[in-house]
């Protein structure tokens, strides 16, 4: 399959998936102080034993990992040492006056006005007055700016212990021929289909071309029942970020009739104590499909329920 020429210009759907998380990141003493000083409109650097000053402040030297001796206040002026444009943003490297290092930031000027070696000055943001490096909106050309000086940092703010952060990652996953067929069958027929393993009649769910265990080709397609047996289960009774169902409920690994591998799903319960007794490995269950139009996803099965003996 993978060696055939790509002759099929079929517009295949993808499976959209989002991973989105809040974080509380600790910047450490130096960066924490730098960020804490942003609302005070002071630029904090760190001074090392050899007298060199690095800005923005770093807990560890980029050159050798040494720790700084003191925090200092860096000037707001410096020199542009390199630049580029990405999209509409100009990103430059700036060496603040009296500092040994360079760092990246936005350059707020049109390209023809920008040259390596030019004098620049920080422009404080009118909008962002918070504890972000973007409280400095960027650097602007400042041809006449006098040479700034590094000064002692008088009365430094307490370093920030944590800063809130968010990361969101978006994916468009390919279904491939096997998941594509499986989810299409779920959507169109309300039917869970797998492929036979390399050495038996029971179906692998989810289906795939190569058997995980034998690394041999899997067999033909097979429809599984929407009834099955619990292989393993536990009772979820705690709330965690991102959960979509109210607790308590049962997390279940179910082997559908006709399959050999597990499907992960959930079972509604009334209460914890009765579920301990009524739902266990070996318990027979059936799928309860969602009402209305199916999407072609595992969630087309709303839940499983116990088949009364």
């Amino acid at each position: 399959m993978l060696y055939a020429p790509d002759t099929s210009p079929i517009d295949l759907p993808t499976f959209h998936s989002v991973i989105s998380l809040p974080y509380t990141l600790t910047p450490g003493r130096c960066a924490g102080t730098f960020l804490a000083e942003m609302p005070n409109r002071r630029i904090v650097g760190s001074r090392f034993a050899d007298g060199s000053v690095v800005c923005p402040a770093q807990d560890f030297s980029s050159l050798d990992g040494e720790e700084p001796e003191a925090l200092v206040q860096a000037p707001e002026t410096g020199t542009l040492t390199g630049f580029t444009r990405v999209g509409t943003d100009v990103i430059g490297l700036i060496r603040l006056d009296g500092c040994a290092n360079e760092f990246p930031h936005r350059i707020l000027a049109d390209l023809p006005a920008i040259a390596v070696g030019m004098r620049v000055a920080a422009r404080w943001s009118d909008d962002d007055k918070g504890t972000s490096i973007l409280a400095i909106e960027g650097f602007v050309p400042a041809p006449d700016a006098p040479q700034g000086e590094v000064k002692p940092l008088v009365g430094p703010a307490e370093p920030l212990g944590v800063i809130p952060y968010a990361m969101a990652l978006n994916y468009e996953h390919a279904y491939g021929p096997y998941y594509g067929r499986m989810f299409d069958e779920i959507r169109e027929g309300g039917r869970v289909m797998g492929v036979r393993g390399s050495g038996g009649d029971d179906a692998l769910l989810p289906p795939r071309e190569i058997d995980d265990i034998t690394h041999k080709r899997t067999g033909t397609w097979k429809a599984c029942a929407d009834t099955g047996t619990i292989r393993a289960c536990s009772i979820i009774n705690m709330e965690v970020y991102g959960q979509t169902r109210p607790v308590p409920y049962v997390y279940a690994e179910i082997v559908l009739d006709g399959a050999s591998t597990r499907m992960i799903h959930m079972i509604d319960i009334d209460d914890l104590e009765s579920a301990k007794k009524s739902i266990k490995p070996g318990t027979r269950v059936r799928a309860i499909w969602t009402k209305g139009e199916r999407k072609g996803a595992v969630s087309d099965i709303e839940r499983f329920e116990v088949i009364d003996a």
């Binding site: 990141l25 580029t84 444009r85 990405v86 990103i91 990246p104 390596v116 990361m167």
Partner: peptide, 25 residues
């Protein structure tokens, strides 16, 4: 997501910016 989240990510510094500056120099 590879560059530090405090100083570099907010200003839009990443692979393209770094490669561009490297090339410009």
């Amino acid at each position: 997501s590879m560059v530090d989240p405090f100083y570099q990510r907010p200003v839009g510094f990443g692979q393209k910016a770094a490669l561009g500056i490297q090339a410009q120099r």
